[in-house]
Design a protein around this nucleic acid. Sequence first.
DNA 1: CTGTTAGCGCCTTCAC
DNA 2: GTGAAGGCGCTAACAG
Lengths: 337, 337
Amino acid sequence: MSTIKDIAKAAGVSIATVSIVLNGKGRERKISQETQQRIYKIAQDLNYVPNQSAKKLRSAKKDSYAIAFYWATDFRINYLARITLGIQEEIMKQDKAIHLTVVPYKVDQLQKQLDAMQNEFFNGIIIANMSNKDMDYLNSIHIPCPVVLFNRESDKYSSVTMDNYTIGCNVAKHFIDKGIFDAGVLTHDTSFPIMRTWMQGFLDTFAKAGHPVPETNIVLCDTSSSSAVEATKKLYAEKRMPRSLFCESDVLAHGVLYACHELGVAIPQDMEVFTIGINMAEFNDYAIPSLSRVDIPMGEIGQHCLHLMVDLIEKKKPNPTVQFVEGKEIIGQSSPR
Amino acid sequence: MSTIKDIAKAAGVSIATVSIVLNGKGRERKISQETQQRIYKIAQDLNYVPNQSAKKLRSAKKDSYAIAFYWATDFRINYLARITLGIQEEIMKQDKAIHLTVVPYKVDQLQKQLDAMQNEFFNGIIIANMSNKDMDYLNSIHIPCPVVLFNRESDKYSSVTMDNYTIGCNVAKHFIDKGIFDAGVLTHDTSFPIMRTWMQGFLDTFAKAGHPVPETNIVLCDTSSSSAVEATKKLYAEKRMPRSLFCESDVLAHGVLYACHELGVAIPQDMEVFTIGINMAEFNDYAIPSLSRVDIPMGEIGQHCLHLMVDLIEKKKPNPTVQFVEGKEIIGQSSPR
DNA sequence: CTGTTAGCGCCTTCAC
DNA sequence: GTGAAGGCGCTAACAG
């Protein structure tokens, strides 16, 4: 890695001259054409790449934070954009130079990514979609800057989260109020406690209403639409299709709709479907039929995460602080009022 | 903005002591508990935030690049995640400390965002989804580092792009080969030339085959599913539904499917649908019916963008360099073979 | 036209 | 236990 000093030596000029030329101020400062050319040539030859840290140290405005945003790259990948957008919107509101580094990581392998990054160079870290394993790892280490978790509660770290249990309860009530007591759930066999919480609220509410969801109606699948298609077909083949189905994500719900369409199961007449909406509203509004759901307000959560982060960095809030946001209920044709 | 120097002064110790304590090496270096507490307290009170640039300058590994990724936040927001993922995958492959700053910008307002960021502090800039206006602006200014455009050709800047015209031609051929000559297109009235190129290839091919698409079958709408729903209903009401329809994006295609389902128009029997796939395959595979399309390989493009960027920074490739990637044709039920 | 110099904020070595 | 000093790479006065 060469520096302007190397260039200066090779060109037989001072480092100041090199700096001037390489910053395009050669004309202005009346450096001779010949010298300029020589400097450019040598910079090229030496493969000079400016050290941005040094530049910044010297001349950036001081109020500048570097924030990392870690997100798991599983089926939830689609909503990253909206969280990022929310974060950035909030960044624009703050009048500070905040640089957001987006870092994908593989589920259960947060450790690997966290090690690979040079975390000592961030002022704050936002982490989304952690599995239990990732959480365990995070709890076991020391992070030298504030951490904000997205939709994940913790004693040790700050977070922006939702009342997930109540969300599940409300979905159950939606069915119960209509007198639909025959329910099923389509859920992931994973270690994401948030999802467990949705489902738990749903199951508990049915149980409390005197209509516990039978074990056979708790269907596990992985996180893909195709898996949901299979699961639905299996239910159908075994004649266990419930009158109402709660899906853990819209990705699964789309699979259910697809399978039902093939099987000739009419929604909502034969079966009503409710889901958690993690993708853009448009995808669920124009599903056939449009999906009833609770949408997670990704952008809003992103905003909150960043705002909280800045408050933590600036010590305006104690660490940990937990904030809650509300889900948004949308009633579509898959489970009309 | 306070520094360790300020803390040292306030605490009546040297900056070295402060540095040691704040880096958690107090025990190790046997700084007295009392001093440590005092330092922590003062750091808190003075609202100390470490300057990451200074830290890096002092201790980062040398081979370190700062790269900005600008992306437009319109309807294409959904695919940001996959591009970012591709970029980051490539970053992991390179054994370098590459920090990716992700910056969303509003279409036509690249200038605003570009001005707001401190671009002199990046080693390279990747820009996605530029409108003509944004391109004009970019052409009018000088950027002191390599720029890589995503799916956008330019004389001045490097880019990773696709043979968009041929993509449109191939879609047309798909219909023509089956003897379907009655075609329509659903397209945006926008200034994204890429999209224009797809459509142009499609229209030219039909024209060359002796079946030019009539003006009335070139339907403009905005970028939302709802707009596509309206457009489809209007076509139907005016009895102009073509036998085949090429949609500029899957967001529109979903609206078309939704509208056709409501109208009782059978796909593909009454009308075949082909689209450009910008979202995850799953959404289109499990549409009802599944969508025939050309998928844009977002991850792959991201990888190429970053790889090219590093090559440009290290002067291993001339600037500008243009690279091409191939689209992936998927045949679904909306337009079977 | 070009060079000298003084830091930017931080960490580390060495000395006391 | 703690302090002094040097230097990371760069820029901007200021001095010729």
